[in-house]
Simulated scan of single mutants.
Amino acid sequence: MSSITDLCRELRQRETPAEKLLWRHLRNRALFNRMFLRQYPICVKSTFGRNFYYIPDFYCHEALLVIEADGPIHLLKKDHDKNRDEVLASLNLNILRFTNEDILNNTQQVLTKISEML
């Protein structure tokens, strides 16, 4: 079984075109000098003492901001995504979700919404 670190590396290697485009605008503190990480594991301990990991597409610890780039698969995972967002929100994280289509076709609007959260 691979480690969570290996899984994150694999996800970074299989990024979608939308993730790749958004990463170009977020990396190297390009937006408001805030550091974003890609496919960074966030650990949540359950009431039973077990660790669960959530791996957002982009994460800024300074702003407590999670950004998700949702592709077509997310249409089938709405309940899962809703539960995941609730867990992350319970950690005082703000979650922004954008469709891959919005990221690719309305990049400036997406960056404006992210900027407003920073």
Rank of each mutant, 00 (worst) to 15 (best):
M1V: 05
M1L: 06
S3K: 03
S3R: 03
I4Q: 01
I4T: 02
T5F: 05
C8Y: 03
R9A: 08
L11G: 01
R12I: 03
T16H: 08
T16N: 07
T16M: 07
P17D: 08
A18C: 06
L22T: 05
W23P: 00
W23D: 06
H25A: 14
L26Q: 07
N28C: 12
R29F: 08
R29V: 05
A30S: 15
A30H: 13
A30Q: 15
A30K: 15
A30E: 12
N33H: 14
N33Q: 15
F36S: 03
F36N: 03
R38N: 10
Y40R: 13
P41V: 02
P41H: 01
K45H: 04
G49T: 00
R50I: 10
F52T: 10
F52R: 14
F52N: 11
Y53K: 06
Y53I: 07
I55H: 04
D57F: 09
D57N: 12
F58M: 05
F58H: 06
C60A: 10
H61E: 09
E62F: 00
E62M: 04
E62N: 01
A63V: 01
L65Y: 06
V66K: 06
V66C: 13
V66M: 09
I67V: 15
D70E: 14
D70G: 07
D70Y: 13
P72S: 00
L76K: 09
K77D: 07
D79E: 15
H80I: 07
H80Q: 11
D81T: 12
K82H: 10
K82C: 01
N83L: 10
N83W: 12
R84M: 03
D85L: 02
E86W: 00
L88V: 06
A89I: 01
A89M: 05
A89E: 08
S90L: 02
L91G: 02
L91T: 04
N92S: 11
L93F: 06
T99M: 09
N100G: 14
I103G: 03
N105I: 00
T107G: 04
T107K: 08
T107W: 07
Q108N: 14
Q109V: 10
Q109E: 15
V110W: 06
K113E: 15
I114W: 07
I114T: 10
M117H: 11
L118V: 11
